[in-house]
Simulated assay, not measured.
Amino acid sequence: MTRTAIEIADNSALLVIDVQKGFDDASFWGPRDNPDAETNIAALMDAWRATGRPVVLVRHASVHPGSVLAADHPGHALKDLVEERRREDDLLITKTVNSAFYGAPDLAAWLTARGIGQLVLTGIQTNMCVETTARMAGNLGYDVLVPLDATHTFDLTDGTGPGGLALTAAQLAAATAVNLQGGGFARIVTTAQLLSAARAGATA
């Protein structure tokens, strides 16, 4: 049965995944999609703040040599739009792999301790850390919502050179949407839908 109505729980957690300065380096990553992603992430953070819901910040500490997301690189820092909205009671997770559930502190333990069963996932990259975290969250039994317009990614090749497989960022984002919703891991929604539902839930 497909669920279409969006209801935001009072303790629904907003995960802001890897919104880090290193992703602004176009020479490292190549072309991206969705230039509105950061604006939508900021709007969702503001809505979660206004309604008293929890926010989880996730950052990637790459272990790959030369990465702009390495812990000792300036690109490891959170983007200003996130840092400006950061609060002391936010959970800050640092990870070295795609899933936020394999970081420190332990995300699942934190959610369980607070009785949180619903997650809203935003961030970078759509088809990498956002999708991986959403898949794992779905497997763990969480109600997962992904506003695709509050994520973005980059063009990607399979690394085999000329003649190899290549997909644009938009194609990868579309594949993520199909994978997550079609596979039953998460519901794909919009930022506008979530903002409306969050406000409605806060006044109910």
Rank of each mutant, 00 (worst) to 15 (best):
D89K: 05
M128D: 10
Q181I: 00
G123K: 03
A9E: 14
L92S: 11
T191Y: 04
A204N: 15
G30A: 08
R87Q: 13
A50G: 15
T176M: 02
D143Q: 13
L194A: 02
S99E: 05
L81D: 11
N179V: 00
F23G: 08
D33K: 01
V58D: 06
A26R: 14
L15V: 04
T2I: 13
A5E: 15
A109R: 15
N34G: 01
R49L: 10
G159F: 07
A174T: 03
G161L: 01
G103P: 11
D46C: 08
I124H: 13
G201K: 10
T203H: 14
A71T: 10
E88P: 02
I116S: 09
T176D: 10
G52D: 04
N98Q: 11
A200V: 04
L156V: 05
V189N: 05
L180D: 07
H60C: 01
A100Q: 03
Q171W: 01
A50Y: 07
E131Q: 12
A186W: 01
T176V: 00
L69A: 09
D18A: 05
R32I: 01
N179K: 04
G164M: 06
T153N: 02
T160R: 12
R114A: 06
M45T: 06
M45G: 13
N11M: 08
L140G: 14
A175I: 00
M128V: 11
P162Y: 00
A170C: 05
L81V: 14
A13Y: 14
L194Y: 02
A71F: 12
F185P: 15
L172S: 05
V16Y: 02
R85L: 02
R85H: 06
D90M: 02
D46G: 10
R86T: 03
E7V: 01
A192C: 01
T132V: 09
T157M: 06
P31I: 00
A26T: 14
T157I: 06
R49N: 12
A37R: 08
R49S: 13
T4R: 10
S196G: 10
D80A: 07
N40E: 02
A5P: 14
R135V: 04
D25L: 04
T132A: 07
